[in-house]
Amino acid sequence: MADLIQLLTNGLALGSIYALTAIGFVIVYSATGVVNFAAGQFVMVGTFAGVATLVNAGWPMPVGYIGALVVMALFGALFYLIVYLPLRASPIVTVIIGTVAIGITIQNMALLTFGSWPFPVPSPFDGMMIDLGGTVISAHAIAVVIATGVLILLLWLLMHRTAIGIAMRAVAQDVKVARLMGLRVQWLLAFTWILAAVMAGIAGLMLGPMWFADVNMGDPIALKAFAATVIGGFGSLPGAIAGGFFVGLAEVLGASYVSSAYKDLIAFGVMILFLLFRPQGIFGEKIQDRG
């Protein structure tokens, strides 16, 4: 039982990171239709923004975090200008390959800048452990789960209770109508990319202390986030969250109860089953793309 609680906690912490990555991916997808294969690199850049401010520049914790998120907002804006605008009218495949290509560039630039050694990233909860009779849980992991919950709430409030959020949803539903309504569509789309980059940045800052910062960590996270997105439902925020937690738990529980060698087949196998039998996922968008 103690072991089960331990596994559940670790699975949830892992799932939180997948969920946040998936949210960044879904925000962009639902507003712009772009399937962003560089989503994992966004998270990596977020972690290294933290390395730059907290480790290299040695800024104190809150300032360093804010600095890193400002960097991420700029990164999102830059990505909007350099990648999204030129490719916005291109077919899906071109966009997929374009984001993969720029992902290669981002990863190699990070390697050139930060080198190949992984970095330890500080956390406000460094070394704090909570012992619950045999189950040892790091305070950071609990903080990650709680922070993810709070972020999801804030994101919901932003999308449903603020003018900018409602305008973003209008753009996501129908760009032409949104434009006729007098919304400044391009600004809203730029804001979408910035928001997605900041969400990825938060994921990156939270995972850094758990997993170290490593320039190659982007793609594996993105793969799991894709599985999470499909399972939860393409384009659905609650889906991204549910999917993220599912994939995290499947990974840890699968390794424990099924097979550690084949555990990743569970996430991708379930993903394929969902695509076949319930392509709209748990909460997903209306299926237009199924014959």
Binding site: L223, V230, Y262, D264, M271, I272, L276, R290
Partner: peptide, 26 residues
């Protein structure tokens, strides 16, 4: 699988490829 289209098919085939590598490696 081919009932799926667009990015759904893209991700399903991606999942297949990842699964192939896991099996080949283990």
């Amino acid at each position: 699988l081919l009932r799926l289209k667009g990015h759904y098919l893209a991700l399903a085939t991606l999942g297949l490829n990842v699964s192939f590598v896991i099996v080949a490696a283990n």
